[in-house]
Amino acid sequence: MKLGTEPSAVTRWIILGVVGIIFAIPIVALIQFSFRDGLGGGYTLDHWTGLFGEGAARTYRGLFQAVGNSVLLAVVTVAIVLVVLLPTMILVHIQFPKLKRVLEFICIVPITVPAIVLVVGLAPVYSVVVKIFGSGVWTLAFAYGITVLPYAYRAIQANLEAVPVVTLSEAARSLGANWATVLWRVLLPILRRGVLAAAFISVAVVLGEFTIASLLNRVNLQTALLQVGQSDPWVAAIFALLALTFAFVLLLLIGRLARNRNNS
């Protein structure tokens, strides 16, 4: 095969097939497992119906609580991204362009630090956080706000670079808009896609997070799944599937947004 030529259709389908199978096997196995009737073989819907049936709310209270926690964490994390990261990035982009490199470095660093190392550093910090904000599970979002930085930063930065933000905000100001109006009526609408993508990817990251929550002794979906899995592996499998589906839908939406951006 010559360098630079595209692989043939057959080659492409083979690659796609192999990769697809690698990803599909565990998921299919998980689905199959969730219908298995004990160790003896045979299939049943009991595990699924049991989850939504009578008394399930009480039996799986911990798990539902954990789902609630994770959703709360996702919301607070997104809020941190929108309230802290987004304005900072806009401000740096427009007023302090020299700091762009610094901000980028700070935002990318978390991806290079393993979660386990992050926790070692976070543990003493959280003894202070607890004193100030109490021990509510939502305080974990402070840590998540850091872990999602690289992803959120990239999503917003791509959008910021693609539009002439400086000129547009100068034009708006020359037309009589104050900074708040510039942000609300001009910058947010044109950065909408980047901001949405940042929010979605933050949700996906938070819903999949295990290490930090576990080591800081907080309950979120992932830690609860592990716990439930030890006594009721089927429920754990079902919840894992549901979480996976949700994350998949989010990623599809992000892909959609990215595609729309290319079209316009």
Binding site: P164, L168, S174, I190
Partner: peptide, 14 residues
């Protein structure tokens, strides 16, 4: 209370 036209295109794209 000024009106300004810029070198680069500055219409709000949305």
């Amino acid at each position: 209370d000024i009106g300004m036209v810029f070198q680069s295109y500055s219409l709000f794209p949305h």
